[in-house]
Amino acid sequence: MYNSRIAGMGAYVPENVVTNDDLSKMMDTNDAWIQERTGIQERRHIKDGDGNTTAVMGVKAAKIALERAKMTAQDIDMIVFATLSPDYYFPGCGVQVQEMLEMRTVPALDVRNQCSGFVYALSTADQFIKTGMYKNILVIGSENHSGGLDMTTRGRSVSVIFGDGAGAAVLTREEDNGKGILSTHLHSEGKHALELSLKGPSTMEWVPELIEKDPQEDIPYYPYMNGQFVFKNAVVRFAEVIQEGLAQNKLTAADIDMLIPHQANLRISQFVQKQFKLNDDIVYNNIQKYGNTTAASIPIALTEAWEEGKIKEGDTVVLAAFGSGFTWASAIIKW
């Protein structure tokens, strides 16, 4: 059995910055209200004419990751693409990346696990490498939220949270079993699926049926979130899945050199940090700048933490996520 390790990372966010004050001009909200509840100060949104889509942003992040891994697209044996906001209902973004990067006819797998998507995708790629089936796998998390948000007062509780962006990692074979991804841990609890969901359009409710709905009522083609319920479940599951990973590898919280939590809400990250008694310099947060970019949040944060020199060779890095499904996951990495 091999291990897999991250050979290169990259991130991309649109240039268009949307501040809390910008949002206050579209809906009844303000900077203090948003920061108090989420910690977010600004986010990036795709702008008409900038050429960005979920797949395009994924490709931009992937090119940076490939360059840093000292590889070309022709070295990649598989693509795993995580998103809840694909360019099309079908096909998925994975094959678009394969075409845009002019790759060989490698397999492309799309993962639909929302905020846990990148860790699920990383785990999937890790298993393919561990078994020896593939050597180099490109893992991408990318989201275009801004095009599907209710930017009115009615939708403010959700719309102020989300931003657009992409992150990517190139995984490669590592023969030293003491390095790379040591373990991953995946969970779900489907009975809460609709507490954080977007129900239409879907095969249960197609576009003509949606058009006939009263626009003053809840509209199923905008995201719904039971915020307090999600928060309460998130802090519990974050702690559980981090502890699960530490225990499997005979580690404790004192062994963590860097925790990269999914950037769902700064208050959630701070709560988890307090539970594990971690110093500020051991927990990386960038939700203040980008908002919640769902499947892209962990790879963007991981890339930035590495770029800033906060992750070094030999460090124990922990990734953890919780989101719609409910799904949650963690990864323990020896850098």
Rank of each mutant, 00 (worst) to 15 (best):
L84G: 13
K47Y: 02
K289I: 11
E99D: 15
P107R: 07
T105E: 12
E99A: 15
F81R: 05
G49H: 05
A305E: 00
T72I: 08
I287T: 05
N30D: 15
G58K: 04
L182W: 06
P223Y: 05
K135H: 15
V80M: 08
Y134A: 11
I46N: 01
A32I: 15
E195A: 14
V283W: 04
Q74R: 08
Q270F: 00
S123K: 02
A166P: 04
R104Y: 14
L109M: 12
L149A: 01
Y290V: 11
A254R: 09
R44N: 07
F90P: 11
E67D: 14
T184E: 07
D77R: 09
R68W: 06
I333K: 02
D281A: 05
Y2F: 11
S4I: 04
G309L: 04
G147W: 03
H45I: 01
E217P: 03
A73C: 04
E67K: 15
Q228N: 15
I140P: 01
K334W: 03
G155H: 07
E308I: 05
I268Q: 00
D22M: 07
D315Q: 03
Q270I: 00
F322V: 06
L171G: 07
N249W: 03
G314C: 12
V97F: 10
P208H: 03
L149T: 08
V318W: 01
M9L: 12
L302H: 00
T172M: 11
R154F: 10
L182Q: 13
Q270A: 05
F238H: 09
L319A: 00
R156K: 14
M133Y: 14
A69R: 12
Q275P: 05
D77S: 10
A73V: 04
A169M: 13
F238W: 06
N3M: 07
N249I: 07
I300W: 01
T53W: 06
K277W: 06
G200T: 04
S202H: 05
Y134K: 08
S297K: 03
M225L: 09
L149Q: 09
I282K: 14
N144E: 13
R43K: 08
M204F: 15
L194M: 14
E240G: 03
V97N: 08
Y284I: 01
Y134S: 06
G141H: 00
L196Y: 10
Q74C: 03
V230K: 00
D280P: 00
A169L: 11
E143W: 00
S188L: 14
S188Y: 11
N279G: 15
A7F: 10
I64C: 02
I181K: 01
I40N: 04
T303I: 03
S188P: 09
M78L: 13
S116I: 02
G132K: 10
V80C: 08
K63P: 06
L84E: 12
L23Q: 08
A239R: 10
V236H: 05
V119I: 14
K213D: 10
I140L: 02
G94W: 12
K310G: 07
A11K: 13
Q41I: 14
Y290C: 05
A247F: 09
Y2A: 11
L138W: 02
R156L: 09
D176T: 13
A82F: 01
V13Q: 06
H192V: 13
Y88P: 05
A253D: 10
Q74M: 11
L302F: 09
E240F: 07
N30C: 12
I256R: 11
D31V: 09
T294K: 05
L302Q: 00
I260Y: 02
I140K: 00
K130D: 03
P201T: 12
T316N: 13
